[in-house]
Amino acid sequence: MKLAWLRSLETSHQDCVWACTWVPATDKSPGLLLTGSLDETVKLWNPEDLSLVRTNTGHCLGVVSVAAHPSGKIAASASMDSFVRVFDVESNNTIATLEAPPSEVWQMQFDPRGTTLAVAGGSSASVKLWDTAEWKLVATLSIPRPESSKPSDKGNNKKFVLSVAWSPSGRQLACGSMDGSISVFDVQRAKFLHHLDGHTMPVRSLSYSPLDPRVLVSGSDDERIHMYDAEGKTLFSSMSGHSSWVLSVDVSPDGQAIASGSSDRTVKLWDPKMRAAVQTMTNHTDQVWGVKFEGGGGGVRGSLLASVSDDKSISLYNYS
């Protein structure tokens, strides 16, 4: 289990790079890397040599999240002005522009079958589900307010939703909030199941293990990475090692490793069995906002890992 640095592109964007994801290969095109930046652009890259495939414009106020449809044909990008732009990967034609005022847009993810786009809705304390056929809002999964709080209580601001993740089966969905709680939903019944406690600061990233659908990995500003049993409501382990916020976590396609990106400028590879970091990459010079493994699970060993950072650069590593 190790990471080998492959290549980096120093100034991939004009400004901080805040989001990245892999667009799966189609019959026409190989797998591509999709990045979003504060410079209001979204860029597509060929991982072979990190050459620029295309630059998409049209966003205002910084791109905070990107998501790719499992088909590899459609992708979505979201910016701080709370618009989601859904576009055709090949032609860059806008397919739809989504907004659900007054809720903001933070992390997004397509469900594994590609029928639904889940969008973390910020202050609305909910996750918005969009149908990918007609691009209609089909459901709002709201985090229930604590019994005690009055509706006017601004305390529910703490349930501000930042991150979202689908379980590999697509039946469950988890979202992380500013107050450190993680909420788990049953998607089909559009029902809130339970909270996962343990973090005490914003949870900015969530990732299910592709092998064991019960295992949910979370990264938080409290510098910890937690592994939960999302169904049994138990905390397997709490791993410390980053010296600042954990901004992004992703479980490797073989389910054997966890990658994390942190404000401490490092990318770490964790062995969940040892509950310890086994490797630390220090090639970035500013906060690492995104880490993402390529490949759609299935226990494959060996894949690419991408990381993006405030230092405007993109790095690729070989995971084996």
Binding site: L196, G198, T200, Y228, D229, G232, K233, L235, S238
Partner: peptide
């Protein structure tokens, strides 16, 4: 590594 009930984690 005894798993811990998440509600006690805090």
């Amino acid at each position: 590594h005894q798993p811990m009930d998440a509600s006690l984690a805090s």
